[in-house]
């Protein structure tokens, strides 16, 4: 009887310890790497005066097939300059462009094109076009 109790003692201790140490198994739903962009409280931003440097943190839609990163530098005088890192048949390449922007109740218009939806959440902007959307985060001034 004493031998049995002695052999059970380590197991008993282990059992007690197990009760004190929480499991740290990654739950199945937490295995994926997620970005909390979807939780940002975006609201429409009509007539918002754009000003500052923005960097994309998420691109969705068909545009995401070739777009890897976008940078916009908006100026409050209605001009902007931008760069996009794209990936095509010939590999990755930057595109740069400069132009004008207007933001009205109809949406954001770049270079006089049809307006697209512009939304804002804190330091983030979301621009939604026909073939994709981009979420931009304000960056430190260059």
């Amino acid at each position: 009887m004493r031998r049995t109790a002695g052999s059970c003692l380590p197991a008993l201790c282990a059992g007690l310890l197990a009760g004190c140490i929480a499991s740290n198994v990654v739950a199945t739903e937490d295995r994926a790497v997620l970005r909390p962009v979807a939780e940002l409280p975006f609201v429409a931003a009509p007539e918002l005066v754009l000003d500052g440097l923005y960097e994309s943190i998420e691109i969705t839609g068909d545009a995401a097939l070739a777009l890897r990163r976008i940078y916009y530098l908006f100026r409050p005088d209605g001009t902007y300059t931008a760069a996009a890192l794209t990936e095509g048949e010939r590999g990755a390449a930057f595109q740069t462009l400069s132009g004008t922007w207007t933001n009205t109740a109809a949406g954001l218009s770049l270079d006089g094109a049809d307006p697209v939806r512009l939304e804002r959440a804190d330091e983030h902007l979301r621009i939604t076009a026909a073939n994709g959307a981009v979420v931009l985060r304000r960056s430190a001034a260059p």
Binding site: G88, L97, V134
Partner: peptide, 14 residues
């Protein structure tokens, strides 16, 4: 799905 221009950028066809 085909890509095209996006926010004044012209995208490679993918």
């Amino acid at each position: 799905a085909k890509t095209g221009g996006f926010l004044s950028f012209s995208l490679p066809a993918t």
